[in-house]
């Protein structure tokens, strides 16, 4: 049985334009594809990744256009549909001014006080 791994994502939009992905969400999916048992906890400003309606299309430098901008909200929903549990800290969502109706379907809310119990469910916790 593979080890159970929780990826805690706390830093958002770090080079996501250049990489056309969030590198941790991408990495998580690649690990899943390789047989890992992974889950994601979005915290701090990374909770914004679950916001519906993110759009960074249209970027161009001179005549060089970005043809595949990242679609982080769709990515979060896709990760959930792949069977990877995605959780987010409710207090951080509130601190960002986000209501549950602002978010894509799929991620589940937990309160900050539930985080220790969440960590206890995993063999490894990677904090990115």
């Amino acid at each position: 049985m593979p080890k159970k791994i929780l990826h805690v994502v706390r830093s958002a939009y770090r080079a996501t334009i250049e990489e056309q992905d969030d590198t941790v969400l991408w990495f998580t999916q690649a690990m899943k594809g390789a047989g890992a048992d992974v889950a994601v906890l979005l915290t701090e400003n990374a909770v914004n990744y679950a916001t519906e309606g993110q759009d960074c299309s249209g970027l161009a430098f001179g005549r060089k256009k970005q043809t595949q901008p990242p679609t982080i909200d769709a990515e979060v929903a896709k990760i959930c549909s792949k069977g990877i549990e995605v959780l987010y800290v409710a207090e951080d969502a509130k601190a960002l001014g986000l209501e549950p109706t602002d978010l894509v379907g799929g991620p589940k809310s937990i309160s900050r006080k539930e985080v220790p119990a969440l960590f206890a469910r995993y063999d490894l916790v990677f904090r990115w």
Binding site: E19, Q20, W26, R63, Q66
Partner: peptide
């Protein structure tokens, strides 16, 4: 591979191309 795109489809940014585009601009 995570997105099922080959290199052409992914059209992944290489900042060197951004530099060249700015020089052209």
């Amino acid at each position: 591979a995570v997105h099922g795109r080959d290199a052409a489809q992914e059209d992944h940014p290489n900042p060197k191309d951004w530099v060249a585009a700015l020089l052209d601009l």
